[in-house]
Amino acid sequence: MAAVPLIAVRDLEKTYAMDGPPVHALCGVTLAIQRGEFVAVVGPSGSGKSTLMHILGCLDRPTSGTYHLDARDVSRLSDDDLSAIRNRQIGFVFQGFNLLARTSALENVELPLLYAHRNRIAPAERRVRALRALGAVGLADRASHFPNQLSGGQQQRVAIARALLNDPAILLADEPTGNLDSRTSIEIMEIFQRLNAQRGITIVLITHEPQVAAYASRIIQIIDGRLVTDLANASHRAAAAELAGGGHG
């Protein structure tokens, strides 16, 4: 754990210049996340956790401060370079699943490979890899289904398969269980914990629900754009055991 952190942000600030007075979404966040960690970022809405996630996900750039991803300063990269990083190193899972409508699960999962410009992949190979990713989330038999033929949990699993396709270093999940019932939420958390444990994927989970954050091994709390607490969560919940036991809590 003493190696160079996968994510290292220093004095991160983000200010939105609105019509009125400027809004400070982040006011000097410094944070390091090691490879293989499962971190939950919690905080009330408007606390700045979404802004943090957008910056960590290379969807946005900080107003000031630095962001080193895998030892590379990405805070001043061009739009095209950020796109390439999102494509190869980051997988997103959203609250609303964000699958393309009227597009099969398989084609939804293939999507990132369409934009793998530096490493072009033949359509047949795309198919094989997408099927494998669907298998990893237990949906190999739903490959040709459209999103509207899948349940919420299944849709989220397709989204996770899509996020995993390019073997990213980080999985960024923004309220991934916000639209799901509690049982399905546990299923999703089970997948996250399994990916984290078996494949060593670093997971950053943004949530406002403490019981969801409880599955992470480290919990960071943000309030008003500042990092308030940063605690290891050694006695985190184990989703697999809860599912096997038929309950949780």
């Binding site: 996900g57 969807l59 190869r88 997103f92 393309l100 990132p112």
Partner: peptide
């Protein structure tokens, strides 16, 4: 618009 957002999130460049 949302589809565009998703495509951009998974790595589509502006020119894509």
């Amino acid at each position: 618009t949302r589809e565009i957002g998703v495509r951009r999130a998974v790595g589509a460049r502006r020119r894509d």
